[in-house]
């Protein structure tokens, strides 16, 4: 039964994802992609459980390695997305340092 419930969640999230993304303009495709990529770093939650729940040395080490990679994904992904997005400016509000 649990599996069925999880499958339901999966189905609804996929439809929600389609609805949310279909409206993103082409201008923002790169930040959208890297922002979504950062969200996929959610696997860090699973990694934390594997590394910290004391399930034996293998689980701990694999988990710790997973925490490392997933954190690179999360921190790097969000920061680089923020960097990109803060460059998108409207015409009237642009303040330039150069030229």
């Amino acid at each position: 039964m649990e599996a069925v419930l999880l499958a339901f969640i999966l189905m609804l999230s996929v439809f929600l994802g389609f609805e949310l993304i279909a409206k993103v303009p082409a201008t923002l495709h790169t930040p959208l992609m890297s922002g979504a990529n950062a969200i996929s770093g959610i696997t860090v939650v699973g990694a934390i459980i594997a590394a910290g729940a004391d399930l034996g040395p293998w689980s701990t080490w694999l988990g710790a390695l997973a925490v490392f990679f997933a954190t690179v994904n999360v921190v790097g992904g969000y920061m680089v997305t923020d960097r990109m997005l803060s460059m998108f400016k409207k015409k009237d509000s642009d303040t330039r340092g150069d030229s």
Partner: peptide, 18 residues
């Protein structure tokens, strides 16, 4: 773990649309 399923499938769907 539900949050992995939800967040992961949101990203999966987003990538497929792109």
């Amino acid at each position: 773990n539900t949050i992995l399923i939800v967040a992961g499938s949101l990203v999966g769907a987003a990538g497929l649309i792109l």
